[in-house]
Design a protein around this nucleic acid. Structure first.
Lengths: 203, 203
DNA sequence: AAATTGTTTAAAACTACGTTTAAAACAAAA
DNA sequence: TTTTGTTTTAAACGTAGTTTTAAACAATTT
């Protein structure tokens, strides 16, 4: 008899929501079981431990949310357009799941020393193709010579960080949720402009 | 008889180190007591609870590290020079305590809903003087008209985020600790250039 | 010197959590 | 009907955060 995908999924979904909302360490397995409407022992039947369940969820979240981004970085678009698309898609994705950034960053801190082991994390960073493209356009003189790492870190920072300090921004500007979303939407124009400006050749 | 400041400080220091290193929720009070070389009950004698101790540490850290920054924002420097100084001082500060960003962001997530209550957090954001200055320079036509909030978020993001993803950057570029520090130092030039560029009037 | 006051220790208790186990009940498939 | 996979109930284990109690200790005050 096939094991009920339904139950495993219910645990997975309940845990995902709680982990994002409260953080892994502030979520108890009893809480997950309650939210999933299942028995505590079933947690151990499907996932051997909380840490196991967390790993599965983390990998799944990162994979689900990075595939499209990697695809853009690896595409044949010219650099300017690539940056525009990347920023747009990334911001849309984070807008739909605003807790993702905090979650991932908490994990980066939690697992600081064993990051190399976490394969999923790898896909959060620039691809080889992107790096090469920036170097080549620099050599050709199409853009200013730029360290691809610096450029990519700039881009990531400008996209992701505001979500991590969402509450600070909301609070200080007295933003409603809607106003915060508009603030973020504004950045879809602003960020590519800044980045592309920084790449332009100066007279 | 005055209570021994020494013991209270030992608890405070041990807890600070552990909280930054492992995160609040992964640090036990028994661990803190052990590291401080004191009895478990003394934790309760000086700070009523772990959460209390954490609050004290958080406030102290934020206050200690934000005073100089606020002073710069509130100074009478012209905007360009103000940005340069802010970026420089901030990066130097975070370089000396690279775990600060992760720590503060973990707290921002942990205390998402009760952020308004945390007075310390307030000082992490732009001041009224800075906001006014950006608006006025825009009106005068000295710089492009700019949303001060967006500008400040850009600045914060470019400064702080790289520290939060330090391990990712190190790993992906095969940086040693020294090389990462150089990577960050490079940003002291790069970030003000970008920001000031984005403020320049276009022909 | 004795009493007072503030500090520290040792020991234990309470509740909650992550984990694991045991035994039984249940349901679909062979 | 037996087998196999799923689910429940119940309990146990060690550890954690917290709190309490009682005693010991040290400096100050009387």
């Amino acid at each position: 008899m096939a094991r009920s995908r339904n139950t495993e999924q219910k645990i997975f979904d309940a845990a995902t929501e709680l982990f994002l909302e409260k953080g892994v360490d502030r979520t108890s397995v009893r809480e997950i079981a309650a939210k999933a409407g299942i028995n505590l022992a079933l947690m151990n039947y499907y996932f051997r431990s909380k840490e196991n369940l967390f790993s599965a969820i983390f990998s799944s979240l990162v994979k689900k949310n990075s595939e499209e981004l990697i695809h853009i970085l690896d595409s044949d678009l010219k650099l300017e357009e690539k940056i525009r698309q990347y920023v747009n898609v990334y911001i849309d994705m984070l807008s739909e799941n605003p807790l993702l950034v905090s979650f991932v960053m908490a994990i980066l801190h939690r697992s600081r020393e064993r990051i190399t082991e976490m394969k999923a994390v790898s896909s959060l960073y620039a691809t080889e193709k992107f790096t090469q493209q920036v170097l080549e356009e620099g050599k050709k003189g199409n853009i200013r010579r730029t360290d691809p790492s610096q450029l990519f870190v700039d881009m990531l920072s400008l996209i992701a960080f505001p979500f991590a300090i969402k509450m600070l921004i909301r609070d200080k500007n007295n933003f409603t949720d809607k106003e915060f979303r508009e603030f973020i939407q504004e950045r879809k124009k602003r960020i590519p402009e800044m980045l592309i400006d920084s790449l332009r050749l100066k007279s």
